[in-house]
């Protein structure tokens, strides 16, 4: 028995991995394939996998179907402002929750956890009304302001900070370092993997966000890429899947690029949290 298993186990595990990989990669391949097909090819059955002639023109058609430069600019401004502000808020908050003793700490932290658990769908109406009251609806701020504090990020970074030995901080205090310097020179460099992970999650969720801008915007000038691509569907009455998929490819590329650079740090974050 064991003799046979030895030869079966490795190929079996390879096969299972291959299946899981296919499940994850299939939608991407389907998207890329469709983005290069003609309208006719998208409708044929059985479906076409390799387009007869790659239709690169789909990309320019998609990009010319609306003010895509504006959309892209909005997406970039919103996503990067959100990440920047989140990081600036998250680091001191997590440091205080992890390393300080102060009155009301437990209650405040339970608010953070509460915020972490309430979905945006519950709060969007009051938030919309409030922002409308302030006259901010025709700007990018409604897509940035509500996300300044990232509850999940504060929680994760706090856990990470808690693992950093108190003696390192005390040592720095004895080295006459200010609290700001302790955060900047010691805590942040030591938690780079966690910060990269949080920033990446945040990037993906805000870059891909569709629901929130759908509620919070009412003109092309402030809409992000996701909405622009969704609107490709309505330009011709019937769904031009090849054009929509071309748009989606454009939307997804930045995520793939960022992931390529960040993946090393992310793997580190999980390995670190495992061994320390």
């Amino acid at each position: 028995m064991s003799f046979e298993w030895k030869y079966v186990r490795a190929p079996l595990s390879f096969l299972l991995k291959a299946i899981v990989l296919m499940i994850f990669i299939f939608p991407f391949l389907w998207m890329i394939s469709t983005s290069l097909q003609t309208f006719q090819e998208t409708l044929t059955f059985p479906p076409t996998w390799i387009p007869s002639i790659p239709q690169w023109v789909n990309f320019s058609t998609a990009m010319n179907a609306g003010p895509f430069l504006t959309y892209a600019r909005n997406s970039i401004i919103v996503t990067f402002s959100v990440i920047l502000i989140q990081v600036l808020v998250m680091i001191p908050a997590a440091y205080a929750f992890a390393k300080y003793r102060f009155a009301g700490k437990e209650i405040l932290f339970s608010f953070v956890l509460l915020a972490f658990m309430i979905p945006g769908q519950v709060t969007f109406i009051p938030v919309y009304l409030m922002l409308a009251d302030w006259g901010l609806i025709n700007s990018l701020l409604p897509q940035i302001l509500p996300f300044m504090a990232n509850a999940f990020g504060i929680f994760l970074l706090r856990q990470y900070f808690m693992q950093i030995p108190q003696e390192i901080i005390e040592s720095a205090r004895l080295d006459n370092a200010s609290e700001f310097k302790i955060i900047w020179k010691i805590m942040v460099p030591m938690s780079m993997p966690a910060l990269a992970t949080i920033a990446l999650f945040s990037f993906v969720s805000h870059w891909n966000d569709y629901f929130w801008p759908l509620v919070m915007t009412d003109s092309a000038a402030v809409r992000p890429l996701t909405m622009g691509i969704a609107m490709l569907r309505e330009t011709e009455g019937i769904s031009n899947w090849h054009i929509i998929m071309a748009g989606n490819v454009v939307l997804v590329i930045p995520i793939l690029i960022v992931y390529l650079f960040a993946s090393k740090q992310i793997v580190k974050a999980f390995v670190y949290s495992g061994i320390k």
Binding site: I168, S178, M190
Partner: peptide, 26 residues
């Protein structure tokens, strides 16, 4: 005062030089 801890409390992201220099810089 200067203190040496049981677990050394060395700043792990800094080089040996930066570790020694940190207090002087501050």
């Amino acid at each position: 005062v200067a203190m040496v801890f049981q677990n050394y409390a060395i700043y792990p992201t800094m080089s040996v030089r930066e570790n020694i220099e940190f207090g002087l810089k501050n």
